[in-house]
Simulated assay, not measured.
Amino acid sequence: MSSKRVKHLSINTKLHSPLLLCSIPNNSGYLNMDAFHLSAFLLLLLSSLSSACNPNDKRALYQIKKSFNNSYHFASWTNQYDCCSGDAWYGVDCDPVTHRVNGLRIFNDPEIVGQIPSTIGDLYYLDLLLLHKLPNLTGPIPPAIGKLQNLRTLMLTDNSLSGPIPEFLGTMQNLTLIELSFNKFSGSIPAVLGNLNKITAIWLDRNQLTGSIPESFGRFQGSVPDLKLSHNMLSGEIPASLGNLDFSNIDFSRNQLEGDASMLFSAKKSTQEIDISRNLFEFDFSNVTFPTTLTNLDISHNKIQGNIPSEITELQNLQFFNVSYNRLCGEIPQGGKLQDFDSSSYFHNRCLCGAPLNVTCK
């Protein structure tokens, strides 16, 4: 190789950087490699790659794996791969900058047996925790979950979890979604959940919850969450304060709620879905007004009286409608979407008449 090329590189060949030593040519070929410095460099490089996963996070993950008896779900959780290397560790997500574990998803594994390990609370940077379709995951939500103050999404669904919904969830101010559906939770709904200012959805359906809907659910600050409380054993009246908020979706169906629910309706709101079916509600439907955004309405199986307001024919986005098994009377308004629904949406009322019912109005 010509001396001209070496001169063009303008590099001091006396430098002892292994990277430079291995890349600098001379007239007789390449400079002799400084083996010691090269080895040190490679060790440093390998060390930095292997430590991408924070050791505290890695330790917590291994403890979670051990707590669940090394189930097959965790087969990729080994020293062969770094826990923050792409999707190497199944169900583990990491922040690309800090390399801290920020997402944990464990799902669809009947071999996972036992309770939620408290070690999950040591993954301080989690913003998503999903435990889904683990039929043998039992016991309560451990207090250690309360240490996850960065958590935004909490989804513990389709498991066999039990015990009360813990009060400490109301202190986790970064939560935007709480979904505890399809479990065996019991007791009352903690009123402190109404203190969550960033919450966009609270789904507690299909549990064994009792007591009333907290009055604090009518005082959410900031965003107004979707409320899905169906298939429980809730009782009492809906707090009147709920009428002050503009909920997008409400599902209180299949409980033992009673009294007035008319405050959920208003032409000034932007509600899309209301399901209060299979309760004990009693109010006059005649004077209810409807948001133009309404797509789904189910008030069936209650004790609601009055007639169907004609304004409902103006709802152009209505896709589902059921007022059956109530005490409604009068002629079914003609027009709009109302005749798109069959008689099963209207039957078993006191004295409704007109199409699509085969009952002539007198």
Rank of each mutant, 00 (worst) to 15 (best):
T176A: 03
Q173H: 13
T171S: 09
F182M: 03
M172F: 09
F182K: 09
F185C: 14
N195P: 00
L177G: 00
L180T: 12
T176R: 04
G163I: 10
P166D: 00
S162Y: 06
I165E: 05
A201V: 04
K184R: 15
N183I: 02
Q173W: 01
E179W: 12
Q173T: 10
G187W: 13
G170T: 03
S188G: 05
S186R: 14
I189T: 02
S186A: 15
T200M: 10
I202F: 06
T171W: 03
N174D: 10
Q173S: 11
L180H: 08
N195K: 07
G163H: 09
G163Y: 10
P164E: 03
N195F: 00
L177C: 07
K184N: 15
N195W: 00
S188L: 00
A191D: 09
I199N: 02
L193T: 01
P164S: 09
G170A: 04
I202R: 03
K184I: 04
F185K: 15
L177S: 08
A201T: 09
S181V: 15
I189W: 00
G170H: 07
P190F: 02
P190S: 04
I199K: 01
L180I: 10
M172L: 12
G194D: 09
I178K: 06
F182S: 11
L169G: 05
T200F: 08
F185M: 15
K198F: 13
P164K: 08
G187I: 14
M172I: 07
N174R: 15
N174P: 12
